[in-house]
Design a protein around this nucleic acid. Structure first.
Length: 569
RNA sequence: CGGGGCGUAGCGCAGCCUGGUUAGCGCGCCUGCCUUGGGAGCAGGAGGUCGUAGGUUCGAAUCCUACCGCCCCGACCA
């Protein structure tokens, strides 16, 4: 491609709207432009990179035996009502009516549509296994879109759905996808980890997230330093270290705590440690109040609580809501005598004679005990894991790191096929529900994540596999009767050698072209300038290392072909 | 949704507090000269419903009200 013939509107200054690196660089390098909040146009060079990711995904999906199709973006509400998600999905699902006042929505994902296709067209165990995928624009009306392509409302996603005859067969499909995903992200040149994850709204029994490690990650992941365990914070299993306290139950006692409403102030006032106290957090689970108990020095993990309660919407109750539900002002809530539903973290169930709110203004109580002073609906792992907790697999030391979720694989089971009555006839003549799996890759997010991971002060540094061009030729002698033809010959020779090359044939000063080349992040730069006039040599520079070498043009072609081939392995 | 900030030329900003004639600056863009290995220099030029609507006033980018849009933080205190 000729720079003079393409459309790469680079910006010298940082756009005010962008905060994080990938967003800033994509705007500056002319990859994207915003249309409205969370919705972007992909300009030619940005689209080129998106296509690179898509092609890698497509190749690996095909290699794994999946079949590409394309489903509609506009979907009828009926289907979503069948699966029960029209209610459950929440405001992220953009709903609207068409001219006939038919309820419709924009597809944030396609389980319903694919299940509908399969139930209509596949009827026999002989048709399976089957794995269907598409690469398509999705729309999710995010609460707060941010960070450019990282959390947009509209984005490109690859979504695949597998259908199997049995749970065991579905596990095989799952493993196939898991392996395909490892290849995809490795080929994209990303440093990533596959972690155990929460399965969220889509539901299901087993799932892994593929996380790109980057400082600007939106998720925190837990990694074991001593084994292969890695999990999303939301999912990471807390293992009880200490055995249950076997102390004798002491008599319940009321203690006055005037004006002391927080864990810290109560502890300071009573001269105790937060670990001796249980805090009572009230949440509104789909509109109903629930109290969750956790040790004073712990934090509730909201996702764990949501899953335990089976709730769609879970928010902390406001002061007024708490008072309306319990008759107690916040700060003095405790389990003993509380009239709403109570669930407890496993750690609380192991505690004896602890402190808690007295359910009366300015009072707490001591020597509270589960079973004697209160009952709970459920005991479960409800708290956030910490680096002091042992690895649930090997007992080793845990570390925390930030990550960007770029892929997610789920084993769905028969949830959708049952709700939507999708069945096939098995060998034995029995009608059975399809056992499903679903597998997503955030294509546009991969692009953002790659930049987060690969950049410097001068701009992007693309891995060769994702680079819009592998090589940029900087022609420093447009008007020169020696340099210009040499640069042009190098360009056509590289093209002929199958190298993806951009030639900067603009009538601009050298510094200007160098800055743009760096900003765009093209892995190799070949400068044809006055050096060529003197010695017949061109300068080859690697973007990542900054290393430069002088060589003859023919040599440069061979060198570049080698390096590119090497890096595409 | 709660909190904060911002909307003035394609981009980045000043002007607003304390209202007053042709609304500025840098970058970018156009023309010419000059220059050519890290975003040059000089000269000339084009480009703006000051987010929208209403109000106050002789007069509004500036003051008031409402609305719209965008960005950031939070939604893990009890």
């Amino acid at each position: 491609m000729r720079y003079s013939k393409t459309f790469i509107p680079t910006l010298k200054e940082n756009p005010a709207e962008a905060e994080i690196i990938s967003h800033r660089l994509m705007l500056r390098a002319g990859f994207i432009r915003k249309l409205t909040a969370g919705v972007y146009s992909y300009l030619p060079i940005g689209l080129t990179v998106i296509r690179k990711v898509e092609n890698i995904v497509r190749e690996e999906m095909n290699r794994a035996g999946a079949l590409e199709l394309l489903m509609p973006m506009v979907q009828p509400a009926d289907l979503w009502m069948e699966s029960g998600r029209y209610k459950k999905y929440g405001p992220e699902l953009l709903r609207f009516q068409d001219r006939h006042e038919r309820e419709s929505c924009l597809g944030p994902t396609h389980e319903e549509v694919i299940t509908d296709i399969v139930r209509k067209e596949l009827h026999s165990y002989r048709d399976m296994p089957v794995n269907l995928y598409q690469i398509q624009t999705k729309f999710r009306d995010e609460i707060r879109p941010r960070f450019g392509l990282m959390r947009g409302r509209e984005f490109v996603m690859k979504d695949a759905y597998s259908f199997d005859v049995s749970d065991e067969a579905a596990s095989e499909s799952y493993v196939k996808m898991y392996e395909a995903y490892k290849r995809i992200f490795a080929r994209c040149g990303l440093d990533y980890r596959a972690v155990q994850a929460d399965s969220g709204t889509i539901g299901g029994s087993f799932s892994h997230e593929f996380m790109v490690l980057a400082e600007n990650g939106e998720d925190t992941i837990v990694i074991c330093n001593d084994c292969e365990y890695a999990a999303n914070m939301e999912k990471a299993t807390v293992v009880l270290k200490e055995p249950a306290d076997s102390a004798e139950s002491l008599p319940l006692e009321k203690v006055e705590t005037p004006g002391k409403r927080t864990v810290d102030t109560v502890c300071e006032f009573l001269g105790i440690e937060p670990r001796q106290l249980v805090k009572t957090m009230v949440y509104m689970a789909d509109g109903k109040p629930v109290a969750a108990l956790v040790r004073g020095d712990r934090q509730i993990e909201k996702v764990k609580l949501t899953n335990l309660l089976g709730a769609t919407e879970l928010e902390m109750a406001g002061e007024q809501e708490v008072f309306d539900a319990t008759g107690v002002p916040t700060g003095y809530l405790g389990p003993a005598g509380l009239k709403i539903r109570i669930v407890a973290d496993q750690e609380v169930a192991a505690m004896k004679n602890f402190y808690a709110g007295g359910n009366e203004k300015n009072y707490h109580v001591k020597n509270v005990n589960l079973g004697r002073d209160f009952e709970v609906d459920a005991v479960a792992d409800l708290r956030e894991i910490t680096t002091d907790d042992p690895c649930p697999e090997c007992g080793g030391r845990l570390g925390l790191t930030e990550g960007i979720e770029v892929g997610h694989v789920f084993k769905l089971g028969t949830g959708y096929s049952e709700k939507m009555n999708a069945t096939f006839q098995d060998k034995d003549g029995q009608e059975k529900h399809f056992v499903m799996g679903c597998y997503g890759v955030g294509v546009t997010r991969v692009v953002a994540a790659a930049i987060e991971q690969h950049h410097d002060d001068n701009g992007i540094i693309w891995p060769v596999a994702l680079a819009p061009y592998s090589v940029v030729i900087v022609n420093l002698g447009i008007q020169d009767e020696v340099i210009n033809p040499a640069a042009e010959k190098l360009y056509s020779d590289l093209l002929a050698a199958g190298v993806e090359v951009l030639i900067d044939d603009r009538d601009e000063r050298p510094g200007f072209k160098f800055k743009d080349a760096d900003l765009l992040g093209i892995p190799y730069r070949v400068t044809v300038g006055k050096g060529f006039k003197k010695s017949g040599m061109v300068e080859v520079r690697e973007r990542r290392s900054g290393e430069t070498k002088e060589m003859a043009p023919e040599e440069a072609i061979a060198f570049l072909q080698d390096r590119i081939r090497e890096q595409l392995q």
